[in-house]
């Protein structure tokens, strides 16, 4: 009643204050909106738009409907790089996560030289991908590369690791796992340290073995971290292609090419920008599906503290 009288008495001031708050909020949001709009949302929409048009090399661009997409589905190279990308994701994501967890559990213990180990595991993350690719290029070089020299000293024959379609993907996957695992380890380490030590003590009073405790308590409590890391790793496996520029250029015969690298080639080597736009829309759809799975489905099935 009192409140009603008050509002009736000062409707103008209240509305004015409301308006001022709104303007204030929008002004604070403005820089982020402008940047995101200009460099993320507008390009996505523009890409989608261009993917429905012809290239227009001889004359104006024409609306061609799904023609570009039809072409994509008929493109053997597209299917190969897509398959490569899924194989690459399947090879790198679980391995780097498993390795990260293993390293984190190890360096979480009270052992001598723990800080040194942590630093050592983290170092590959600090290096730029370009540098990493160059280092590993030397490892894989036929005959005088590190790997071949080592094999030769054991009496094996040399091998052109990056030149052989049957070994090139494995070689790249090993390198990416080496680079990524240390980064993911940091997340696991932080999560491990947030688990109260009494849980371990309570479990040991009950007679739980270390493995039982890890399986039934530690691992479930790490699930939010595992989910976060796996989404990141999956996105990275589609996003990180720097190594291809240095090491293989997608070869031999597209055996190591990934979707994003193919888009780059189509756009800036063949200058077929509308087809590149079409491929980009496909890539964005895949990544959006991954993110959506996390937010809609997986988040509900995981315990968050």
């Amino acid at each position: 009643m009192v409140a009603a009288v008050m509002t009736a008495a000062e409707p103008k001031t209240a509305r004015h204050r409301n308006w001022a708050t709104n303007v204030n909020a929008w002004l604070l949001l403005l820089p982020a909106i402008v940047l995101l709009g200009m460099f993320t949302h507008y390009p996505i929409l523009a890409t989608l738009y261009h993917s429905f048009f012809s290239l227009g090399r001889s004359g104006p661009a024409e609306f061609v409907g799904l023609e570009n997409y039809r072409y994509m589905l008929d493109d053997d190279v597209f299917w190969q790089v897509l398959r490569n990308n899924f194989i690459f994701a399947l090879a790198t994501v679980p391995t780097s996560i498993g390795l990260a967890l293993l390293m984190a559990v190890w360096v979480d213990k009270k052992i001598v030289g723990r800080s040194f180990l942590r630093l050592a595991f983290f170092t590959p993350t600090v290096l730029p991908m370009i540098a990493v690719a160059n280092i590993w290029l030397f490892f894989y070089t036929p005959d005088y590369g590190l790997l071949d020299q080592f094999l030769k000293s054991l009496g094996f024959a040399g091998h052109n690791w990056l030149g052989d379609p049957s070994t090139v993907m494995t070689c790249l996957a090993v390198m990416v796992v080496w680079k990524e695992a240390g980064f993911f380890m940091i997340f696991y380490l932080a999560a491990l340290q947030s688990i109260p030590p009494e849980l371990k003590e309570a479990a040991s009073v009950e007679g739980a073995s270390r493995w039982y405790f890890f399986r039934r308590v530690t691992f479930p409590l790490l699930m939010p971290t595992t989910l976060f890391i796996s989404i990141n790793a999956l996105i990275n496996s589609f996003k990180l292609v720097d190594q291809l520029v240095i090491m293989t250029k997608g070869g031999p015969n597209n055996a190591s090419s990934l979707l994003l690298y193919y888009i780059y080639e189509v756009a800036f080597n063949f200058w077929d920008t509308t087809y590149a736009a079409t491929l980009t829309v496909t890539l964005i759809t895949i990544l959006a599906a991954v993110a959506l799975t996390k937010f809609v489905y997986l988040d509900r099935r995981i315990h968050y503290q």
């Binding site: 003590e201 309570a202 308590v217 503290q305």
Partner: peptide, 28 residues
């Protein structure tokens, strides 16, 4: 601790946050 055949209640209770009440009680 397990071989001593004791039970213990901790100051922080040390309950397993991802398990429900029943699962916590029958953990041992």
């Amino acid at each position: 601790p397990a071989e001593r055949r004791i039970s213990m209640v901790f100051q922080s209770y040390a309950l397993f946050p991802h398990l429900n009440v029943a699962e916590n009680i029958i953990f041992g």
